[in-house]
Write a protein that binds this DNA or RNA. Structure first.
Lengths: 137, 137
DNA sequence: TTTTAATTCTACCTTTAAGTAGTAATTATT
DNA sequence: AATAATTACTACTTAAAGGTAGAATTAAAA
């Protein structure tokens, strides 16, 4: 009952990138060391984030990562979709297919509210909003 | 972001057992066929449920499973704990250790409400309550 | 006492997530 | 042109979840 490590790390990485204000790019080594995320795993994750189009990478010396669009326009849910962690409407708590009005599982009704709150949390929160808050490690 | 298959199946199995009113015991073959759960996987799951003390098994011919205590006294959460799926208080959405008042993650505050709703749902719902509802497959 | 129908146990197989290793490609600097 | 610093790619390893196979155990019934 939790997000994949990839999603958790990706959100933390991008939230950290928002706060980072500097002329030079943020690179994998620095992200790995400050966020305590294994270097090789971090680069693997970032490669997927880059492919998704949220982030741009510059290779070679002095390279690193930066946002492809303003963090105020990036919803947390966009990060989850990269790793197939987005909460789908049709997926219910007991894993039964087609759990809806006609035929619904024993916990269907009680599941609706927490599900919608989570969907709302992920779909409406922007990176910009959440970045200011909290600690990163 | 979902329960393990073991927890999902176990809840569905026990909920079905509540509705079953018959002189003879419910056995693995019948449960497997009516709930469309792989037989061998189901017996593995039930062995753990029996070990937890929620259910009693009778071996040998005409054997099967029945509740060790009334379903009205069994909370859904007791099933989750068998498979380590219970939602822990200290566990937060971004997987950071010690995410609390002092140092909390970027989504900590928004996570509280859905988390508590889920905990409430699992901790307060009894098997008896949820069994009447919904379809089983 | 043998047969039969049931659970239990031990061990394995498969798939996926998580993490690691090494090399290739790219780019700024010297 | 060489070097150093960076990401990308390919492939592997490890751990856990999900699932399967077969033999052992149990107990009712013939």
């Amino acid at each position: 009952m939790q997000l994949s490590k990839s999603s958790q790390y990706a959100i933390r990485i991008l939230a950290y990138m928002v706060d980072y204000k500097d002329s030079k790019l943020l690179n994998a080594t620095e992200l790995s060391e400050t966020l305590l995320i294994p270097y090789k795993f971090l680069t693997k994750i970032m490669t997927e984030v880059v492919k998704s189009g949220l982030v741009i990478s510059i290779r070679g010396r002095d390279g690193g990562y930066c946002f492809a669009k303003p963090p105020s326009e990036i919803k947390v849910n966009e990060i989850l979709t990269i790793f197939n962690d987005s909460i789908k409407d049709e997926q219910c708590v007991l894993g039964i297919g087609f759990c809806n009005g006609m035929c619904k599982c024993a916990l269907h009704d009680q599941w609706m509210e927490p599900k919608h709150l989570m969907q709302k949390m992920f779909q409406e929160s922007t990176l910009e909003e959440i970045a200011g808050r909290g600690c990163k490690i």
